[in-house]
Design a protein around this nucleic acid. Sequence first.
DNA 1: AACAACACGTGACTC
DNA 2: TGAGTCACGTGTTGT
Lengths: 238, 238
Amino acid sequence: MENISDEYILDWETNTFLQAEELQPSYLDEAIPTHNDSSSQDGTQSSLMANKSIVSERNRRKKLNERLYALRSVAPNITKMHKESIVKDAIDYIQKLHEEERKIQAEISDLESAGSSSKSTISEFDHEETFSSNPKRVTSESFYDSGGSRSSPIEVLEFRVSSMGEKTVVVSLTCSKRSNTMVKLCEMFESLNLEIISENITAFSDRVLKTVFVQADEKEKDLLKIKIETAIAALNAP
Amino acid sequence: MENISDEYILDWETNTFLQAEELQPSYLDEAIPTHNDSSSQDGTQSSLMANKSIVSERNRRKKLNERLYALRSVAPNITKMHKESIVKDAIDYIQKLHEEERKIQAEISDLESAGSSSKSTISEFDHEETFSSNPKRVTSESFYDSGGSRSSPIEVLEFRVSSMGEKTVVVSLTCSKRSNTMVKLCEMFESLNLEIISENITAFSDRVLKTVFVQADEKEKDLLKIKIETAIAALNAP
DNA sequence: AACAACACGTGACTC
DNA sequence: TGAGTCACGTGTTGT
């Protein structure tokens, strides 16, 4: 009458799983209800083939559940025990870790940018370990710690404001590529509330280049330049 | 008219003429076979209550699967598409991040606390709450963590992921230009932790076009696509 | 063919 | 009593 025999069941709720587990489930007890009637005619497929897939499927499910439980055990985010929540929490947790990672990386790259800003084009192309596998961190040669370290500043390499025709001013700005440079530049320009005709930002190698076409006449050119300069400065120094 | 709440995956599932494969099983079957139709008096259970639980359960499954996909989208560990592998990879990835975290933290605290007596018995093996509260040296600013900033959603007008050579995948994405679109797009791509070779974003008229060259082989193409899709969806719907 | 992965509908169960 | 979640056995589908 009962066929539930497996022991692991129900403890997703209330938990405190007392797990019982063994691999290689070659044969578990339990008569799989392929219709009773032992040793009836044509026992060939009806029994063997049928319940082999049953036990196979059973194992698949069990394994996935174990994995899910293991997933929850590495994510200290615990809320609910429902499968869906487990995955959700894991996602949130990973994203949190990502953000942490980014912050720390920004800090490090900020720390090691203590040297002068040489304008040598580096052109180093090997992207072997951009992230993730080994955060390396060069040998500590920079002991200029002290002070506060905030998210990496914007290092301007080139900055030009020129006129184009009567009513258009072109702003072009080259920075070194740090962790949040693109985002910051976008935010910065957005905060200036300019009449932007078209803007473009591209990142390659270790550079970020931003070009903005602004609707403004020649008179406002210098003003615009100062505006942007101060915005960048304000962004770098709190 | 609005279908934002659910089903967001299907919207941009249609195009991509090149890519022919990937099963992606059929859609809803529609017409739940509630067996016999009229005749039998008592319409009480047969129809309403019976298939309400069916459709409910159907939704549960669907939701969980979406979550699993989303989980895979944040873990760049990608191997297989099978559910079990997804969870497994996620676990491995979290553990890797944990280890990295610990290493870096050790380095930092080693580097900057040269001398003072520290109670550094913090986290030898304290799985549980390693940094839910997270002491760490919080970077002073960058305080746009969550909440707020509820601005217009990202409206995708075109989205394409194509391969270019062996090891490069090109992502191109066109959106309508809203208040924060550029910033959000930049943030979104940054949060994915891709190996970006070069990226470009340009705004003109009422469009924003972003192009990203990612280091990835052909296999990861579809995965990458889903990753971005889910990131956008997650960005639009809280 | 036999296998692995999946979605489905359904009974059992808890809150 | 009704809305949630779960495990189960089964049918289908790519490899």
